[in-house]
Amino acid sequence: MDITFEHVTHVYGRKTPFEKLALDDVTIRIPSGSFTSIIGHTGSGKSTLVQHINGLLKPSEGKITVGNFVIHAHEKKKDFKELRKQVGFVFQYPEHQLFEETIIKDVCFGPMNFGISDAESTKRAEESLQLVGLPASFWHRSPFELSGGQMRRVAIAGVLAVRPQVIILDEPTAGLDPKGREEILSLFDDLHARLKLTIIMVTHNMSDAANYSDQVIVMDGGKLLLAGSPKHVFLQEDLLRKVGLDIPETMLFLNKVLDKAGSKDKIPAFTVDEAADAVIRILNGVKDHV
């Protein structure tokens, strides 16, 4: 399911004193099966952008296509159920949406809403809970007895149980400790690799954006600033800094090494391993020159 935005504009609170242009003529393409990260300063329009993909927000101008589903500005009320079945959305702090008496019932909520039978919903719920690594002994307990990290995984299972083709993640690791972060990110990385799901992730973490994505989209003031491979995007350090963004910590470190070597080069390395190799190359290079 390819996703395209054509000249999409979104205005909040039109014709009130609080009118705000949140998206300004955005045109992008997210290919089917890709892992796309969306970065930008708080208030740059990242969240507004992704909420258009499953019809939670409707464009004020422009057109959005998700597979065969088309959303135009100015069109009448539309049933988004079919679209939302295909596009799962994990909100920021998704554990705040849990409400059922038991964990398994909560995970079934999504599939049942989309008209999947009880038996099939339960089956999918169990699969999803296994996928997020919550032991079966928990399934019939109340979700409110869990720790924050466990609740987050239950909420994610609730989205996965619908078996969407596209998953949108709005800062999925906010507030988690390092171990929890790692678990969540590798879960989605795995889903992307194994099931070819399209993943769209809004994040503040440049290293995550660089390490997991095929494409990075940079938003600024409601406008599309940059889009392309992590390499392409993170080599434009000056531009990113101008809009209040950083580069991955590996590159920050390489900058320090390069600086010491008197070089103005930029090296796009995103894992510690790649960066270490680059460090060794730089050191040897300096020696060769001497």
Binding site: P178, E182, F253, V272, V279
Partner: peptide, 15 residues
């Protein structure tokens, strides 16, 4: 115990 090492230490270990 599940803590993420500071970057310089990760880099130091890999190097």
């Amino acid at each position: 115990i599940g803590l993420d090492l500071p970057f310089a230490i990760k880099m130091r270990n890999v190097l």
